[in-house]
């Protein structure tokens, strides 16, 4: 009984620590290396972009020229370079064209962090379990450890 308990405690501690450290580090590295802050847009076809450009005046959001923005600027992972638009009117802005009718959903860093948060909760639970099992061993003394 004590041996099984100790093995479960060690496994829970290992998985708990692993889950608490690796996913957030991986998410940070991914967000930094493969992430890009963009404004998603439902892009207009070229002739409408021409019309939009004729109506655009300096000081207005540049994304209005290229389509209608989908939400606020967001960080996405593994952006397809073919979909990136860097407007000549404001090269500091990066637009990312998505066609929802074709089922395009870029992976959001926000979603990855939500998954990380869930693994952190599970890791916390596992570490608490390990702590309780080690506490149990300590309280039951050498008898508990040799009861097998």
């Amino acid at each position: 009984m004590g041996l099984i308990r100790d093995r479960i405690a060690k496994a829970a501690l290992f998985l708990g620590v692993f889950g608490a450290i690796v996913p957030p580090v991986a998410a940070s590295v991914l967000s930094g290396s493969a992430g890009r802050t963009v404004i998603l847009i439902n892009a207009d076809p070229p002739d409408v972009v021409e019309a939009n450009r004729a109506l655009w005046t300096l000081g207005e959001p540049v994304e209005k020229i290229y389509g209608t923005p989908l939400g606020e600027p967001m960080r996405i992972l593994f952006a397809d370079p073919a979909r990136i638009i860097v407007p000549k009117e404001d090269p500091a802005v990066t637009l990312y064209s998505v066609d929802k009718t074709k089922g395009e959903n870029p992976l959001q860093v926000q979603t990855v962090w939500y998954a990380v948060r869930l693994t952190m909760y599970v890791s916390g639970g596992l570490m608490a379990l390990a702590f309780l099992l080690f506490l149990w061993r300590r309280l039951s003394g050498p008898h508990g450890a040799v009861s097998e």
């Binding site: 998603l40 439902n42 207009d44 409408v48 209608t68 923005p69 939400g71 929802k100 926000q110 939500y114």
Partner: peptide, 22 residues
């Protein structure tokens, strides 16, 4: 369809859902 560009957006904890209609 090219003359109509409507987007809608829901911001929640897990994800931002964005949709369109033309």
């Amino acid at each position: 369809a090219k003359f109509v560009n409507i987007t809608f957006e829901s911001q929640a904890d897990i994800e931002t859902i964005v949709g369109t209609t033309n």
